[in-house]
């Protein structure tokens, strides 16, 4: 009897618990949905950056560079910690070529010549290792909401995924390469799927398209993308991340010039 009573009491408690939890899930869901609908352009960008902006990582990647019918494949390993990054090429032709980025400075090391070069001035405008990514692109800071005024252009479908389409116009007085950028961001995963970069005259300069996203360590991350320089025909650079680890053990002193040699 006692036990029965206790049992019914328990089931009653369970019911309440169930209702409460259901309610709360619903409530959270509704607020989440509401919040999602009312996300400002800046918030969307920030949420994308939370996914895409990497503070600390180790990755192994591949770059397929196509230029007027010629195809080059470069593989690399890279380490990153905040403002510092190191890239070491592993394909036979460029094996041992290294890039070191520390803040706004970029160095390159050529193993054959045992030569260390600081990349500056006009060299920054060149495509990195013949790709469509310029050295300048590598150096540019990622805090886009400070450099651009973003505006939500609308919501649409892109390759079957619901997306936000946003437009960013340069904040007057800020020194950035691209005057205007248009981004397509996945509404559910908050990953950029496509980006167009424009000159002040309105001409499309570069276009980046994400071909594949993957959930890595709980976050959606673009793992295959293609970059095209729209001013040059028949060139494209495909970038494939084969392995990425967001919380690696970084060797000590890895980001020093001494280690670069």
């Amino acid at each position: 009897m006692f036990a029965l009573m206790r049992n019914s009491e328990r089931s009653y408690q369970l019911k309440i618990l169930l209702i409460i939890s259901l309610l709360s899930i619903l409530l959270v869901g509704i607020t989440f949905l509401a919040a999602a609908q009312e996300l400002t352009a800046d918030e969307i960008i920030t949420r994308r950056d939370q996914n895409e902006y990497v503070i600390k990582a180790y990755s192994e990647s591949k770059m397929i560079i196509k230029n007027s019918g010629r195809t080059m494949v470069k593989t690399m390993r890279s380490w990153q910690d905040g403002e510092k990054a190191l890239v070491v090429f592993t394909n036979p032709r460029d094996r041992g070529t290294k890039f070191l980025k520390r803040g706004d400075n970029l160095w390159m090391f050529f193993p054959q010549a045992e030569d260390l070069v600081k990349i500056s001035g006009h060299m920054l405008e060149q495509g990195m290792m013949g790709s469509d990514f310029s050295y300048q692109d590598m150096l540019e800071s990622d805090d886009l909401t400070e450099l651009y005024n973003f505006k939500l252009l609308g919501e649409e479908k892109y390759k079957g995924r619901p997306v936000y389409k946003l437009e960013g116009i340069k904040v007057p007085g800020k020194e950035v390469s691209y005057y205007r950028r248009v981004v397509w961001i996945d509404k559910e995963r908050f990953v950029g799927l496509k980006e167009e970069l424009y000159a002040e005259s309105g001409r499309l300069l570069k276009e980046a398209v994400v071909l594949e996203v993957d959930k890595i360590e709980g976050r959606w991350y673009p793992v295959r993308m293609i970059m095209e320089n729209k001013l040059r025909k028949n060139t494209s650079t495909e970038f494939i991340i084969q392995k990425i680890n967001f919380n690696p053990e970084l060797p000590e002193d890895i980001f020093t010039l001494e280690r670069l040699r």
């Binding site: 340069k170 007085g173 800020k174 020194e175 950035v176 390469s177 691209y178 005057y179 000159a199 002040e200 005259s201 001409r203 300069l205 001013l231």
Partner: peptide, 16 residues
């Protein structure tokens, strides 16, 4: 010919 250059704020601009 497309002239690609940077303005005084380092932003790309073009002239056709």
């Amino acid at each position: 010919a497309i002239l690609l250059f940077r303005t005084d704020e380092d932003t790309f601009n073009t002239i056709d």
